[in-house]
């Protein structure tokens, strides 16, 4: 999440109680909108303002949209002079990153209620139980649904003026592929490669973040993920996981759906980890893998403004999850 204020516990607590929090994609990427009606609605407000990039605004229940602002830049959209403000991870945690939210949020609440609600004042005066609860809560990462299984992939990377972007998503594996993957591991030294279609899905979830709907063609993906049996008994098989990957979009359209901002990249490296296979249940019980020895570079098409400000970095962590009514976890 680029807008670091959205992980401030006070902001999260207030969004959960005093506001209706909405995220939608911008006018220039209507295919990414989950409600097709929003494209026309957003355009009716201001098609130019909402054409690309992060934007924030409070909207009153009668539909009145207040001043559009951008916490990352620390100012209303019309006041932005081009200087960077809260783009690095450290700056996004700075008190200044929430200044505009506090200012604009108070105006919206006053416009609606005539005064600021008690929880708003208490939160900014020093916290409160709700804020403390948010501070202590674990993040909510994507989980497989009932009967589903697959990889949960975490990604962190640098991108242009951002030193630390991140993402998390599932790469689900169909039940037949999942149960067949390790079935042949009957003795130490046996190995089993993840079938190519499942590897492609996994690789697509590993892409660096920062661009819209990055989706690599199959021809832009090379690599493998292999289970190597070390210890086998009648119940389980455990061992190491090895692999390699080469993610190299050939077309800018694969790198991102926002043409003016799309930037090709190449990321290569190894995959290393451990696994436990349930021989009786014919399913993975555990798997944890990370990318190692990663060589990563952005391949901007032109101009110094496209050059990355921070050294390219691409980290990947992968774990296996079985859904709640799936096989043993």
């Amino acid at each position: 999440m680029r807008a670091g204020l959205l992980s401030d516990p006070r902001v999260v607590s207030l969004l959960r109680t005093l506001f209706v929090p909405v995220h939608i994609s911008a006018c220039n990427t209507p295919d990414e909108m989950r409600d097709a009606r929003d494209a026309a609605l957003l355009a009716k407000y201001d098609a130019t303002t909402f054409r690309g990039g992060e934007r924030e605004a409070f909207v009153l229940p009668d539909g009145t949209m207040q001043q559009v602002f951008l916490s990352l830049n620390g100012c209303d959209l019309t006041s932005y002079s081009g200087g960077r403000c809260h783009y690095t991870a450290e700056a996004r945690r700075d008190e200044g990153a929430v200044r505009l939210f506090r200012h604009r949020g108070a105006l919206a609440l006053k416009a609606l209620h005539g005064d600021l609600p008690g929880p708003w004042r208490e939160t900014w005066d020093g916290g409160g139980e709700a804020t403390a609860a948010i501070e202590a809560a674990a993040p909510v990462w994507p989980e497989p649904g009932a009967g589903e299984q697959g990889f949960r992939v975490f990604v962190r990377n640098s991108y242009r003026m951002y030193d630390d972007l991140h993402g998390a998503e599932l790469a689900l594996v169909d039940a037949a592929t999942a149960s067949a993957w390790g079935t042949g591991l009957s003795g130490a030294g046996d190995e089993a490669a993840l079938p190519r279609p499942a590897f492609v899905a996994l690789a697509r979830a590993m892409v660096p973040r920062g661009q819209v709907a990055t989706w690599l063609a199959e021809s832009s993906i090379a690599g493998e993920l292999v289970l190597h049996a070390e210890h086998v008994d009648e119940h389980t098989c455990s061992g190491v996981v090895t692999g390699r990957f080469d993610l190299a979009p050939q077309q800018e359209s694969e790198a991102g759906k926002r043409p003016e901002a799309a930037c090709r990249f190449r990321s290569t490296g190894q995959l290393a980890g451990r696994f436990v296979w349930d021989r009786e249940g014919r399913c993975l019980r555990e798997l944890r893998v990370v990318a190692v020895d990663v060589a990563f570079e952005w391949l901007p098409r032109t101009g110094p403004d496209r050059q990355p400000v921070f050294a390219p970095r691409h980290q990947v962590g992968i774990e296996w999850l079985n859904g709640p009514t799936g096989k043993a976890r």
Partner: peptide, 23 residues
């Protein structure tokens, strides 16, 4: 929903999917 609950909307617009970080 905002009208029913008498709450302002906080609108965050960004290209792409915020949940997966593909934005």
């Amino acid at each position: 929903e905002a009208k029913e609950q008498n709450k302002p909307i906080y609108l965050f617009v960004n290209d792409g999917d915020v949940d997966s970080g593909r934005c």
